[in-house]
Amino acid sequence: MWNQLLPSVRMTLVLSVLTGLLYPALVTGIAKAIFPSQANGSLIQVNGKVIGSELIGQKFSKPEYFQGRPSSAGDGYDAASSGGSNLGPTNQKLIDRIKADADKFHIENPDFTGPIPADLLTTSASGLDPDLSPASADAQIARVARTRRVSPDEIRRLVETHIETRQLGFLGEPRVNVLKLNMALDDKYRLDPDSGW
């Protein structure tokens, strides 16, 4: 058995260089050449400052923004510490959290009636989910419209233009990217900083 030691060590070193250094270097080189934006994280820059990544959700708590799902990544949307709540379906903590969030949601969105969409008050697996279901965005339209003093129909039209349908017509689920939607809101209905609310 020990006569296999030397070939094992040599094989480990040679294959480590091949698959651990040369392979990622090759992929990096080609990726940076043909997909530079994606390779660097699909970062969104405004006036030269990075405001986030279009793939990574961020925390929204102000009423004039659409709010994403609750997050268990760090203290919420910590993109350096991803993860889910890992709360099981019979965990008291899960039920307490959702009950509290549901009460808060109804207070903040008094116009909303009916069952709350399944994704809106549940945490995602990564804690960085950039999306909401269209129904979850829809549930917040009245609040956003009122806060921004715009008609709900106008906001609804904006939301509809941001719905991404299933890829190739059948893959995945329809969704709305919260950051892109909120950027469009700011773009179109710039808040008057002196309005005082």
């Binding site: 889910g84 069952p115 709350i116 549940t122 995602s124 979850s136 689920e173």
Partner: peptide, 25 residues
């Protein structure tokens, strides 16, 4: 969760079901 007013059934605009620990996409 359904008894707390969370939608359990799928509709055209939201997935329904157990979305805790799952991604929307």
């Amino acid at each position: 969760l359904a008894s707390l007013g969370i939608e359990n059934h799928p509709t055209a605009t939201q997935p329904g079901g157990n979305m805790e620990g799952k991604e929307v996409r």
